[in-house]
Design a protein around this nucleic acid. Structure first.
Lengths: 161, 161
DNA sequence: CCGTATCCATTCCGATACTG
DNA sequence: CAGTATCGGAATGGATACGG
């Protein structure tokens, strides 16, 4: 897809962008969260060329973000469903949404909004340290380290411990 | 930059991707958070072609993510600094980091990690509703709405309500 | 309906040379 | 050091035609 691959970078941001930093990819994932599962639904919703969609879907399946299954009605069609890895992209999508809302819309402008199933608003994402202090953007630094062994599923933990 | 512009989309995710969804852009911003300010620093760190960097920096400045200033030492050089809008991209970068850490590294693999200035780990980002319930990825729905007037600065608020 | 295949225009990106 | 200019190969993306 690109001249230089960052798959070997030690920066998780670089690796993440290498896998889902493509322009269309996160929009496909967004639609998958919206309940779309079929080729034609994505194609109609996004308006992208079918060959591009084919390739993006293949990559997403190969990377374990989407799962391809035969259609539930037994037809010849396929369905694409988010895997757990894909479902965890929700935080990234919401971070993008929050920033877009804050900086790319005028007050009162028509805009898609997110709510939970009970129609409650979603709380803003905040950066905090492990003792709960809210951090300003510049309060974060990076250093060399190693990935810690995961003892419990990531989505059930609230801190890095 | 692209055939179809999503600048008019009513989805904040689409607009955000339209502005910073480019491949190199978030890596430049990441380096800016790392304290880099000069053309050569970005170029050396990222290894991208200079003409591409020139264009990306121009776009970032035009979009108000970076600010171009004369070098503080009075030389002919310029410095690029994050604006407040740019600083608020930190949440997106951290969401990418968190997902990359979880899914793109093996246990024990060498990896850049984030800490706060006191060397405390950063807490995981969680999706919650306005009353503090943690939400699963599928507990979020979208609907038509309008951008609410901002009464206080976004970074000081903890919920949308 | 779900893709695959092909063609073509545009853009991206790297490399290099050049200017101040 | 900080760009600008230019070139060419590769990838992107739109459109269309075709096959299961």
């Amino acid at each position: 897809m690109r001249r230089v691959s960052l798959i070997e970078a030690t920066c998780p941001i670089a690796r993440a962008l290498d896998e889902i930093g493509d322009w269309w990819t996160l929009l496909i994932v967004r639609d998958a969260f919206g309940g779309k599962t079929r080729f034609g639904e994505f194609q109609k919703s996004l308006g992208l060329a079918k060959n591009i969609l084919t390739e993006r879907l293949k990559t997403l399946v190969a990377n374990g973000v989407l799962e391809k299954r035969p259609a539930s009605d037994g037809g010849a069609r396929s369905e694409y469903h988010l895997t757990e890895k894909g479902r965890q992209l929700r935080v990234i999508l919401f971070a993008l949404r929050q920033w877009g809302e804050d900086h790319l819309f005028e007050d009162g402008e028509e805009m898609m909004v997110a709510r939970d199933r009970g129609n409650l608003p979603i709380a803003r994402l905040r950066l905090m340290n492990s003792v709960g202090d809210t951090l300003a953007p510049e309060d974060i630094v990076t250093a060399k380290g190693r990935k810690r062994k995961q003892t419990a599923h990531a989505s059930t933990r609230t801190t890095l411990a």
